[in-house]
Structure formats: structure tokens, C-alpha cells
Amino acid sequence: MKEEVHNADQKRDRVQVVERAFGLLDALVKSGGSATAGQLKSVSGLAGPTVHRLLHTLMHIGVVHQLPNKEYALGANLVPLGEGATRQLGSLAVPQMQSLVAELGESVNMAAMESEMVVYIAQVPSPHSMRMFTEVGRRAYLHSTGVGKAMLATLPEDRVREVLRSTGMQAITPKTLTKPQALLDQLPVISAQGYAIDDEEQELGVRCLAVPIPQGPTRMALSVSGPTARMTDAFIRHATPLMTRTAAEIARKLTRG
């Protein structure tokens, strides 16, 4: 009986340690990605000795590292974990995306913002012989894609400027926006209307309609793309409410886990 009680206590302790470790990682994120041990103690609510023990273990497994200024930051070993989780989110949304393709007849993509880039995490192709195909895992710039602009429109302006300074605004096609202010002027309009358009800015001959996925576990967007001849203004007016509805359904599904 005593052994059973001891084992139960050990299980509770192990669960608590895991919760505290993830709480500390969350505190790092809330602190902007790096913080001192004292700041982490304040944000997490954990005792100082507990913070130091957890940091030592997290550093040992590479999910936290210490900067030259003695602050702690998220480590490189979190990257494949995050990428794997993001891909899984995409697979969960495929049934809703398939329904959207059946209604609209064009390719539907789902993308996430990852390291200041767009990464495509799911696609359901159009049944047309002439269709758009985007490989899952492919990366693209935020400023030149519909999904990227839809996600940028959900960010504060200072964060958008920071992203654009970091990545630059390369001209992917002659129609790509290459001046920060030109994009910044679009973002309030995108936010107000609830959708973004990539009008041959990523690929000539291709138009894309994108909507943000609201309140998801990470910043994400949904898009439908096709040849400009089929992606008319009338198509966009018809597709926008369907896209918005599907994005909300996906958000609810992902939030429920």
C-alpha cells in the first residue's frame, strides 16, 4: 500500500515538473524570447531555485540556451518540435479544405508564419488540369503572398516593419510590392475587409485570395489560388464568405485540439 502511494506521488511530481517546464518556456515567449532568471521568476510565478533547476535541465537538452549577456533564450532544439506540430495542424484541417475545394473548384492552401516567413503546411489541389500546386513545407516571403499579407495584417505596425527589415522586400515578379509603405498602406484595408489578394505578386498568371485563421494556436491563414482567368473579381466576392466560414471552422477545430 505504501509503495502504491509513493508511486502515485511520484507520478504527480513528474506531471508537475512537466507543467512547470512548459510554464517556463511560455514565460520566455511572453518575455519576447529572452529574459534573465529573475524576470522568468516574476513572469512564471515559480520560486528562484525551481527556475534555476529547470533552466539547467532545459539547457542540457538544448531547448534553452544562455546568451552572452547572461539572459536565457529559446534553443534550437525547439525548432523541429515546432515545425512538426505546425505540420500536424495542417493535416487536421484537410477535411475542411477538401470541402472548400469541392465548393470553389480551385486549389486551397493553409500556411503558417514561421521565422518571419510563410511555410505551407497543407494543400488540397484543384480538380482542374490547369491548377496551382504548392508543396507542403515550401517557404515564401510574407510580403509577396496572399497568406503572408493576411497574417501581416493581424500584427502591430512596428512588428510588421521589423519583419520587413529582417527579410527585405525582394521582387518575386514585376508586380511584387517592394516598398514598405506600399504594403503598410494595404494592411488596414486587408484588416477591415477580412481578406488579402496576391495579384500575380508571387507568380505571374496566378491570383490568390487569403483569409486569416482567427484565434488559432499560431498565426495562420487559408488561401484559394488559381489562374487569373478563373480568379475573377466575381469569384472572389463569391469565395470570400466561404473562406471566412471555413477559416473559423478550422480555428475551432484546432483550438479544441
Rank of each mutant, 00 (worst) to 15 (best):
K41C: 11
T178L: 05
A35T: 01
I213P: 01
P174W: 08
A153H: 00
L242P: 03
A35H: 00
H128Q: 11
T145Y: 04
V17C: 03
H56S: 15
R207P: 03
Q186T: 00
S144N: 10
L46R: 07
Q96A: 13
T50M: 06
P227C: 09
L28C: 07
R87P: 01
I250D: 14
H56C: 01
T154S: 14
G90D: 00
A85H: 12
A85W: 14
E4T: 09
A37D: 11
V108P: 07
G90C: 00
V18K: 07
K2G: 07
R207D: 04
A210W: 04
K30P: 03
K11W: 08
L54H: 14
T228Y: 10
L89A: 10
V79F: 08
V124R: 00
G38M: 09
A73Y: 03
G84T: 13
N69I: 01
E114S: 12
V163T: 12
L155I: 07
L184I: 01
A192V: 02
V17H: 12
T232R: 02
H56I: 00
G82I: 09
L74K: 05
F133N: 09
S166E: 07
A112F: 08
A171D: 04
G33W: 07
I121H: 02
R12M: 13
L54S: 02
E3V: 10
V17F: 06
L92N: 04
S191N: 07
A192P: 01
G75Q: 04
L89V: 03
M59L: 06
V224N: 11
N69A: 05
P188S: 01
Q10A: 12
A153Q: 01
E4C: 03
L74Q: 07
L254F: 05
M231V: 15
Y72M: 03
E4Q: 12
T154E: 15
L46G: 08
R12T: 10
Q186L: 13
V124A: 00
Q39F: 05
E3D: 13
G38N: 12
T178Y: 02
L222K: 11
V51W: 10
V189D: 13
P95G: 00
K2W: 05
